[in-house]
Amino acid sequence: MSAEPIIGEPEIAALVRERLPDIPFEASETKTYADLRVAPEHFLALVTGLRDDAELSFDLLRNIVALDMEEAGLEAKYQLYSFPHGHAVQITVAAPIPSCELPTLTGLYPAANWHEREAAEMAGLVFTGHPDPRNLLLEEDLRIHPLRKAHPLQKAEILQGIEDGPPGVEV
């Protein structure tokens, strides 16, 4: 029975389109939730709408996944859940290619703080306006992004405490 979708509600995309008609997005299905792919310039408006609209009211930010899609650049996926209505949705937003900048969600969801710090250090996304953009899991002065596909799994040597240059990766 585990192959059935848990809560796969295809109508959620239609509902979002109905409630937020001004925001363009592409809807698709994952194995569990509906996925809304939105352009970075509409991203903040979409999330604000999802959170504040009475019919949607997605009040829990569950998770942020930072993805390195190689040639397509970086993507971020946000899983949201609504306690009042019991529905969930995933938002995908592709970061602009050279800058990798996305707006921070800490103003909307305080829970985004650590998720964004993690995504920033692991994949190299830049969250503009983040109140505390330090490394979270890695060394504070380390500027490597281990979850980029280009980052090697092995042969990685982190150099610490060397004066003539920032710590980094030696391949």
């Binding site: 848990i6 994952t30 194995k31 569990t32 939730y33 996925d35 569950r62 998770n63 996944v65 996926k77 899983q79 995933q90």
Partner: peptide
């Protein structure tokens, strides 16, 4: 096990 295409978030 090979899985072709797909993604999911499983809570």
């Amino acid at each position: 096990l090979r899985i072709n295409e797909g993604e999911l978030y499983m809570p």
